[in-house]
Nucleic acid binder design. Structure first.
Lengths: 114, 114
DNA sequence: TGCTTATATAAGTATATTGTTATATAATAA
DNA sequence: TTATTATATAACAATATACTTATATAAGCA
């Protein structure tokens, strides 16, 4: 594992962002599979604005990117982010989001957008 | 590196604690060298209550321990903490606090407590 | 003992965070 | 075009956070 060193401020900023269980779970999930907003709304049982606002913070920090596909906007982890390897190290310590992905497979994709 | 997995809640809690630049720096410093409160007050140029309150949060989470030595209370990283290895991984990504330790050596220990 | 030093804690304040509801925007479908 | 769906954003409210100042506690010292 490469141990690149970053500033305390930058690191604290990333940790603060990931120090919210919703955002931490979203990052872990997106790291496995791109998702659209409505999938996250369904999976996390939160309101659409609440999810959008969490995504906004992650996007503002450059941790995720968005891609519109027809009426949906898909979010993905930005693997080009300077701190991507660091974030990977952190995500390696929490349960993989396989269950949530299975939930998506079972219910069908874009579950709440039909 | 062992990649033990913890709950999202527990992990998010630790990240939130470390997601403050003062606490993150304190942890990095204590990881190298035990310090008393007045040393931290001097090094971080913050008020004594502000430092004490940060230490309280770290202590409540079990991340640090305190030991009284005469009139001073020394704080140290709790190496027995369940998430100690995880915290080490995080601290490995920020600059070591060698400079601050040098500052202590230069000025003498317990610099503001004389 | 009374004074000083080191630290903790309580109370108050300003700001940040995270949700809510209401509304705006953009794409698709009828 | 109008209606519907997916998403973003604005405005607001409740709560949390991180300081401040004032005070309490505990140890050492004269």
């Amino acid at each position: 594992m490469k141990q690149t060193v970053f500033s305390v401020d930058e690191t604290a900023g990333i940790l603060k962002l990931l120090g919210d269980k919703t955002r931490l779970s979203i990052m872990a999930l997106l790291d496995k599979r791109d998702c659209c907003v409505c999938e996250l709304v369904e999976l996390f049982q939160m309101s659409q604005p609440a999810i959008s606002q969490h995504l906004r913070k992650l996007k503002d920090a450059g941790l995720v990117r968005e891609t519109r596909k027809a009426q949906w906007i898909f979010y993905s982890v930005n693997k080009k982010h300077e701190l991507y390897a660091f974030i990977q190290d952190i995500l390696a310590h929490i349960p993989s989001q396989e269950e949530k992905i299975k939930e998506l497979e079972t219910k069908g994709t874009r579950i709440s957008c039909e």
